[in-house]
């Protein structure tokens, strides 16, 4: 450590060695994920409190969500996590072709997730279920009717749904941007066996976003899966 390092490809001037630079990047990303845990944590707290306040409303609201689309998205994200892990693996092996292939695959899966999310959102907004004052117009008659006395509780569930999944989707969009950057860098041959921490660090971010969804899926989609409105 004490000796002065001669110039190494990819080593910033203020670091002494590649190991130090890599460690700093990894620790930095993990601490960033720590802040992300607390960021989403505030919403998980709100979820917990409102679910105990409005248990019925949450069953009802959750029932409005499309489990098939949500489930598909869960699988899409799981596969994308695998492809991301593979991309990291091949970046460490120095295999540029496979790295590029898996990065591209991950990007496609991420975009597929966002596409499905778009379909879900537009259906909800079309049904008058976006909980802003200007768009909130829940059906009180017909097949998907929400009884008037439950509408406020369903409103609470739906803003939690939109805020949590919306924030998650923003993270996905950022993730897609990161993947595009990585693909460009990989294409230019920036990554070698010795210098690949950007891929590894981005991988951590991608997996974190997957983990958030792992919790969102049962909390939002599956809570009311066994529930039949008017039944019991």
């Amino acid at each position: 450590m004490a000796e002065h390092a001669t110039h190494v490809e990819g080593l910033a001037h203020h670091f002494v060695s590649m190991e130090q630079q890599k460690e700093a990047g990894m620790v930095g990303m993990w601490i960033f994920l720590l802040t992300e845990i607390m960021f989403f944590g505030g919403l998980f707290l709100a979820y917990t409190i409102y679910r105990t306040t409005y248990p019925e409303g949450f069953l009802f609201g959750s029932h409005l969500l499309n489990v098939k689309l949500g489930g598909t998205n869960t699988v899409v994200l799981i596969v994308s996590s695998l492809t991301m892990a593979m991309a990291v693996y091949y970046s460490q092996k120095g295999d540029r072709k496979k790295l590029l292939a898996f990065l591209a695959l991950t990007l496609i899966l991420g975009l597929a997730f966002l596409g499905i999310k778009y379909v879900e959102y537009s259906t909800k907004i079309h049904d008058g279920l976006f909980p802003a004052a200007a768009t909130w117009n829940p059906p009180s008659e017909g097949e998907h009717a929400i009884p008037v006395e439950k509408q406020q509780a369903v409103h609470v569930f739906l803003w939690i749904y939109f805020l949590m999944t919306g924030l998650h989707a923003v993270h996905m969009i950022v993730g897609a941007g990161i993947l595009i950057t990585l693909i460009i860098m990989a294409q230019r041959g920036k990554f070698t066996k010795n210098y690949n921490s950007p891929v590894e660090i981005s991988g951590l971010y991608w997996h974190f976003v997957d983990i958030v969804w792992i919790f969102l899926f049962p909390l939002l989609y599956l809570t009311g899966y066994h529930f039949t409105p008017g039944g019991h």
Partner: peptide, 9 residues
């Protein structure tokens, strides 16, 4: 989540 954190991450 534990599996993802432990192995993928």
């Amino acid at each position: 989540a534990t599996a993802v954190v432990m192995i993928f991450m």
